[in-house]
Nucleic acid binder design. Sequence first.
DNA 1: AACGATAGTGCAAACGTTTGAGATAGAAAA
DNA 2: TTTTCTATCTCAAACGTTTGCACTATCGTT
Lengths: 391, 391
Amino acid sequence: MPRVKCPKCSKVETILKSGFIRQKQRYYCKECNYNFTLNHESRKAKNKTRKNYQTTIVDIGNAMGISATTVSRALRNHPDISPATTLAVQQVALQMEYRPNLLARNFASKQTQTIGVIIPHLQSTFFSSMLGGIQKVASKNGFKVIICLSNEDYQTELENVQALMDSRVDGLLVCHSASTTAFDYIENYSKKGISIVNFYRTSPSPKTSKVLAKNTEGAEKVTEHLLEQGCKRIGIILGPKSLTITEERLLGYLNILKKNKIKPDKELIAYTDYSNVSINSVVDDWLNLDQRPDAIFCISDRSAIYVIKHLKKRKIKVPNEIAVVGFGNDLMGELIEPSLTTYNIQTSVIGETTMQLFLQQYKNEADSEIQIQTIDGDLLVRESSIKKKEK
Amino acid sequence: MPRVKCPKCSKVETILKSGFIRQKQRYYCKECNYNFTLNHESRKAKNKTRKNYQTTIVDIGNAMGISATTVSRALRNHPDISPATTLAVQQVALQMEYRPNLLARNFASKQTQTIGVIIPHLQSTFFSSMLGGIQKVASKNGFKVIICLSNEDYQTELENVQALMDSRVDGLLVCHSASTTAFDYIENYSKKGISIVNFYRTSPSPKTSKVLAKNTEGAEKVTEHLLEQGCKRIGIILGPKSLTITEERLLGYLNILKKNKIKPDKELIAYTDYSNVSINSVVDDWLNLDQRPDAIFCISDRSAIYVIKHLKKRKIKVPNEIAVVGFGNDLMGELIEPSLTTYNIQTSVIGETTMQLFLQQYKNEADSEIQIQTIDGDLLVRESSIKKKEK
DNA sequence: AACGATAGTGCAAACGTTTGAGATAGAAAA
DNA sequence: TTTTCTATCTCAAACGTTTGCACTATCGTT
């Protein structure tokens, strides 16, 4: 016989036990036909006394005898609020160690002031340098940056995009993975209203803004340089066919060969997935050729470094037997022996421009036109391509 | 005379214009003593018809004739919900292309399933490799990772921590900047209830869990190796005094000198802030000494690379005149000529362990004890320390 | 029949902020 | 004056989810 009062009629006699619910005894009042359990602690009270309770704008409002709305506006320097009030609120906020709850703020405003960046990897300083550019412009404009690595995997890229969308980032800056061949998913998202900027490794899709290096021009300069060094058979190691950087650079290479009346040799045009394995096998194939190439133009510095290391292992002299040039200008190229001739695309500038382009689109979403910007670069001649030593 | 009806009494004659408010004409009804403006579009209707409206659990509930609560639980595989319902809900959710609104979810649940990571920079593959380890374990456990770079600046580190706390991350993994000398802020936050793990570059504070490399042991091995190579005067280039890695490695160095009855020379112990400038000036100082060192032990691979490059510029032969060793095992060490002897701390393992430690603490927050874990490493002998060539 | 347990579901509050629009008082203009 | 305007502040709804607890139906046990 439980000695329990009914919360409605306050009687004791009419109470019956009526099972357990969530580890608690449950009671039933015959009279009132009402079920209940004990231990109704006020949730509110519990929260407010918790030791890591954070002050809210309501607390500030109460403390100052004004509404939370005014506090909210004052903290954000809203013009509706008088300067005096604004100042006072901000001081009290500081005193009370108020920190905005971004979860609540973002939720209420549907804006996160955050952009998601997707890059293939961080195994060289190449992409991290672009990141640097992005971060710089972002933080100057009050944006946070979430970085996701696709590890050159299409599936991961997709998952990352999905996760970022779920987190309601305000924008997406993406540099595709080497294994990405379908780019339409981007269009789907950009239809949903968030602006996307594609950078460096871009898709052929015409629906997004893009920031590119001067790929064709760069490849032309590199190829010209190699010809000037007296190279006759220039092998080119490309990335995957699906990426436009591959196409564009190949074009530059072919342009110069044509201009110099050299017939391109299909055997010397190789596509890879940027992996160590695929690159080494290309090099091995070429070394087995009757007519070896006397220069190798790599579409990335990382590939070029793999090539140099592999050639060294095979006791081939770089640059005298085979010259090697890269593309991009990664910090590593300076370190390796011989130091790497490369086309310096300004990675950091690409990053900055990408973020700026996003900001432009974000601000005037109405008339956001698709823009394509290309960033200048320059040839950086170092040791790996200078054949003159032997004379 | 405006032809406007009062929304209350529906009269036209009683209406007066009463100023502008937010670009809209405002009216006043004399009779009802009521102010109003026109153009009351239903916000609700507006939202639901917007082109990028996202389905919510309420929509799913309505579609299926069940409550949003049940949908919410079903989507998260809550045991209260019957398997049949769960399955059905999940199918409908898929059909309706439902995606959870993480802003709302995080806000309501006060959890973000996100951890913040603070690292000094990404200018070498050193920290990105630790990041890799963290990411791996994190994503396996359904955690997202936000990366912040302090750029070796204390102020930035602080701001990053603040920003992460405002975003209500569930945890913080921090590797201090070189300029950080005050570590107490960490304790403040860990008091607030979120768990923090300090990794690699740790503070002396006893209040947080830590993951360390075997610094002293590693430095001992390195120093021993140099002595075995016949080096008599080993210079050591350290980081800033405030970091424990500096202390610990110095200790290892001193231990071995003592063991071999070599009196340490204060001139050969240099503190730096890891910057190119400060390192080069140390090297220059040493080269001006009457008795130059015959080996330089650098506390980081990046420093070692700066040293090698600088020595090359000054036409000093490495390793024969001066041997150089690093600490850490950065990818770059393999590239430089001569390749760099270094102590391989397993960066990726450090990252993994850090994240695991966090998870442990997070899961049983009640009895979360402070843990300190050290990760094994091994000496990696390459060219830059082998003096035997000349004999 | 009375009671106790349990499984499955729904109700409504809560989370902390933003936001549209109403309210008020005093200033400016007519 | 009367009317219009403006500056400043407040009200209340909304955002999409989670969560504590109530509710119902059903089944098993005395």
